[in-house]
Amino acid sequence: MPTVTMTVNGKQVSGEVEPRTLLVEFLREGLGLTGTHVGCDTSQCGCCVVHVDGRSVKACTMLAVQAEGAEVTTIEGLAADGSLHPLQQAFHENHGLQCGFCTPGMIMSSLELLQRNPDPSEAEVREWLEGNLCRCTGYHNIVKSVLAAAAAMRGAARAAE
């Protein structure tokens, strides 16, 4: 079996995988990082979104071997020094989750949006989250959370200047 090596949440990891192993299977079953969820397993729901080399991808629609040498960030890699990432904090404060199953994907997808566009409109947030489904239909508070996180991150960026 091939050996795959990548950096996950800042730490170099490697493991033997069958070529057909999905990236999400490697993360969950190989590394025990079960924060990344498998919802539909058909590239539609976005529960499995992680970042690979800075781009959000559906980890159920990528092979682990395709991530050879890549920098991977999962939901477990967001909180720094014991404090929640502004997106996590905003979902907490704005009741951006009901059952919570879609939350890791919602946050990892929104993270790329806010990296590209620090001040999105509500319509832009809704459009961006096209590939993320919430089975509780809690979209209003999810969008509210992303907008609150964007404002918090802009405030933090200004304070740092």
């Binding site: 590239s43 979104v49 781009r55 991808v57 559906k58 990528m62 997808s109 790329e112 096209e130 590939g131």
Partner: peptide, 9 residues
């Protein structure tokens, strides 16, 4: 096309 994650790959 599709959604942002599909467009990224």
């Amino acid at each position: 096309i599709g959604d942002p994650q599909v467009r990224n790959l």
